[in-house]
Design a protein around this nucleic acid. Structure first.
Length: 733
RNA sequence: GCCGGGAUGGCGGAAUUGGCAGACGCGCUGGACUUAGGAUCCAGUGCCGAAAGGCGUGCAGGUUCAAGUCCUGUUCCCGGCACCA
């Protein structure tokens, strides 16, 4: 990989290379982990986790893609397993991660939207529905539409909800039904089609009280209620929620309308006209809602949340879709999590001075199931740093996204033995706004980019850095598609550039990949067309071989005024090309047009062979040398090998990489005469050629005199004449 | 269902700000050179038409002297999210 990059002539500073699987890097992962743990940002909990059978390890939520498939193995369904795992409290930063998206104008809107959706902030109200049972227990529901609560005609629980479980424990019949619902949900989750399964549920026969009107409503358990969102319990308002409506229709639960359109129309007022229900927009006002009747929805939400708080039956709240980041992996390759389990002292962190916890090298990684590290006795058995007694090491390793969450800071100070990096050095490179320009595939829009944003905020709070965000400007490359499938390391259908480099050369491979499509677009990789690139490079080489070798430095000067029209045309094209390529480098990065511009420049040069022919004095040697030299400089970023060779050919002694980028001279780029298209009634009818700055009247006169234009205006009345500086438009009737 | 992005010749793509649609390259056609051509060079190449001219940027409308570009509606493709309460 490294050799490939070098062969392709990429200019990386390899002295800053970091290798995340070596202890001098992962030591700092462990150090960060201890800091997370100290700050209660890392914790252990038992929970349902995503398990990829092919990876034989756990995956974070973000790493489950495409309806429940593994992000590494898109053909493999992820299973749900109950495991004790380490989590990082990304949710603690949920608000900030969401808010700061608005401060990233240099990010594609697409990525920001994806992150916003992923974080999924939702404002709502928690309301307690007290159970009939003596203990004063209550079901807490989460709703974004507390204004509809007078229309609540049942409470719906997730099958896994603790109260469901409690009710089921007391009712064997219910237990059977509930277990069915759980099985069904987890299957659907594995298949990834939860959301498409038909809504159904079971009435528990119990009741809970709506604190707003004292009404007792039946408690149901339903398969469309998810335990891991909100509180796992909802109030069901069939008149104003589509899902509740569907459910109520099916089971004959009462549908009670409490919102009507605020425009005064009577649509949807009578429940008998049930076609119009559910009415779900916020643009309405309340009816049948006690003291809140007649309020607008928005006002009602405010007042009714406040009401809940005053009565101690609920409060306004915010929930997130974002979950904590599960970082435990049952794999060998990864950073060992620096934790110990002591019989006496429980969970004990490895002291900082004992870092790094080194990954043992005598591990049999061919076995599957469970953490490989658990099978290495020398690794597993340790001493408790507190009591000195026997302790077991944590055998899970960290998600590799931990490595990539901060590696770019390590680049600033890659060989630091005392800290992940020196704050001052990081500050020098990153300033307050982070990486000037980051490049990556869209596939990392929520994984890597969310984790590294979190990590940056965490490091800022540790006092290591000052910037709030890791990346100021983000550019998302398109994916490379190969016969219909995206090309990626994990899919293993990567086209190696080696063959292309061997056959056509590194320059051709570089130019080809740039020329094929702009970088933000997906590229369907097919190798037709590289011949054209090779031809182009051959023509460049030929162009330089036929020209007299003359160093620009040695040649006497020349005056632009003395140049032949052809030579001036070349000079003009040269400067237009400088402008175009410089523009492409400024952030648009459409290098496909840069390459096209170089081709055009060469075409212009070779179209005037007399200028560059040995023994022909159609142009001064200094002019030729200037054109050649500039051409090489423009070519260099794209085809560095050929450029270096040509640089020597033309007698340059200085290092090409140190030569300044050519300067654009707008005077030299300016056309001496411009061609102006003439339209009659919006259709192109002729073209006139004038000098720049020709007055408008003269242009119109010339335009009207054009014979073809004449034939279209003859006998008609001119209604309007427009000259924009680029084009003449004549309207006749 | 919701949120993004896209659709331009036979193909990849260009048109950066409402101003000549198709730059540049591939492919194709014809020609030159050649023992040879899968090398190189020259010419042509959006569609219809002999020409004049007409038509043409997914589809249907609209605004404008002028629309690939702006507005309304719509179809299809790609990506993301999804019983999110």
């Amino acid at each position: 990989m490294k050799a490939q990059m070098k062969r392709l002539g990429f200019g990386y500073d390899w002295s800053r290379e970091v290798t995340t699987c070596l202890p001098d890097y992962y030591k700092w992962n462990q150090w960060f982990f201890l800091k997370l743990y100290e700050r209660d940002l890392a914790y252990r909990k038992k929970s349902k986790v995503n398990w990829c059978p092919k990876c034989a390890t756990v995956l974070a939520n973000e790493q489950v893609v495409n309806n429940g498939h593994c992000w590494r193995h898109e053909d493999t369904l992820v299973e749900q397993r109950e495991l004790e795992q380490w989590f990082v409290r990304t949710t603690k930063y949920a608000d900030e991660l969401l808010r700061d998206l608005d401060r990233l104008p240099g990010w594609p809107e697409k990525v920001r939207t994806m992150q916003r959706n992923w974080i999924g902030r939702s404002e709502g109200t928690l309301v307690d529905f007290r159970l009939d049972s003596a203990a004063g227990e209550a079901i807490t529901v989460f709703t974004t539409r507390v204004d509809t609560i007078f229309g609540a005609t049942s409470v719906q629980l997730a099958p896994e909800h603790p109260i469901t479980q409690k009710l089921a424990d007391a009712d064997a019949g219910l237990r059977v039904r509930v277990d069915q619902l759980i099985a069904e949900q987890s299957k659907a989750k594995e298949r990834g089609d939860i959301g498409e399964i038909e809504k159904h549920g079971v009435n528990t026969g119990n009741f809970a009280m709506n604190p707003y009107n004292g009404e007792r409503v039946p408690i149901w358990v339903a398969n469309y209620i998810l335990m891991d969102y909100g509180t796992g319990a909802i109030m069901s308002v069939p008149a104003h929620d589509e899902r509740d409506y569907e459910f109520a229709k099916k089971y004959g639960i009462e549908i009670r309308q409490v919102i009507v359109p605020s425009d005064g129309s009577d649509r949807n007022v009578r429940p008998a006209q049930s076609d119009g229900l559910p009415f779900t927009t916020l643009d309405g006002k309340l009816i049948n809602s006690g003291e809140f009747t007649r309020l607008s929805c928005e006002e009602a939400i405010k007042q009714m949340s406040a009401f809940a708080e005053q009565r101690g039956v609920g409060k306004a709240t915010v929930t997130f879709r974002l979950k904590d980041w599960g970082i435990s992996r049952q794999r060998y390759w990864g950073t060992p999590i620096p934790m110990l389990y002591c019989e006496k002292d429980g969970i004990v962190p490895v002291p900082e001075k004992d870092l790094p916890v080194i990954l043992p090298d005598n591990v049999d990684i061919t076995l599957t199931g469970g953490s490989p590290l658990g099978r290495v006795a020398e690794y597993l058995n340790a001493r408790c740093p507190k009591c000195g007694g026997p302790a077991k090491r944590e055998t899970d390793t960290m998600d590799t996204f931990v490595d990539s969450s901060w590696y770019f800071y390590r680049y600033t100070d890659a060989h630091n033995n005392h800290a992940p990096f020196d704050s001052k050095i990081a500050q020098y490179w990153f300033g307050d706004r982070g990486i000037d320009q980051y490049i990556g595939g869209v596939e990392h829009a929520i994984l890597h980019l969310l984790y590294s944003r979190f990590w940056t905020k965490f490091m800022r709070d540790l006092g290591l850095i000052k910037n709030d965000e890791p990346v100021e400007r983000l550019f998302t490359q398109g994916m490379v598609i190969k016969s219909g499938a995206k090309m990626s390391k994990s899919l293993g259908n990567v086209v190696s550039p080696d063959e292309m480099v061997a056959y056509f050369g590194a320059d051709a491979a570089r130019l080809y990949s740039l020329f094929a499509a702009p970088p933000d677009r997906d590229l369907d990789w097919q190798e037709t067309g590289i011949e054209g690139i090779r031809r182009f490079l051959g023509r460049v080489y030929a162009f330089f071989s036929q020209v007299p070798v003359e160093s620009a430095a040695n040649a006497p000067g020349y005056s632009v005024g003395d140049l032949t029209p052809n030579a001036r045309a070349v000079l003009r094209k040269l400067h237009q090309t400088i402008a175009r390529i410089s523009e492409d480098f400024k952030g648009r990065w459409h290098f496909n047009t840069s390459v096209a511009a170089l081709m055009e420049l060469l075409n212009t040069c070779t179209a005037a062979p007399e200028l560059f022919r040995a023994g022909d004095d159609a142009a001064p040697a200094a002019f030729c040398a200037h054109v050649q030299r500039t051409f090489v400089l423009l070519l260099a970023p794209f085809a560095p090998y050929l450029a270096h060779e040509l640089w020597e050919t033309i007698g340059e002694k200085e290092n090409l990489l140190k030569a300044p980028w050519p300067k654009f001279d707008p005077e030299l780029a300016k056309e001496e005469e411009i061609e102006i298209p003439v339209q009659v009634n919006g259709k192109l009818r002729g073209k006139i050629v004038v000098a720049p700055g020709t007055p408008e009247e003269e242009i119109f006169a010339k335009a009207l005199a054009d014979p073809n234009v004449q034939s279209f205006i003859a006998g008609k009345q001119i209604v309007k004449k427009i000259y924009t500086g680029k084009l003449v438009s004549i309207v006749v009737r």
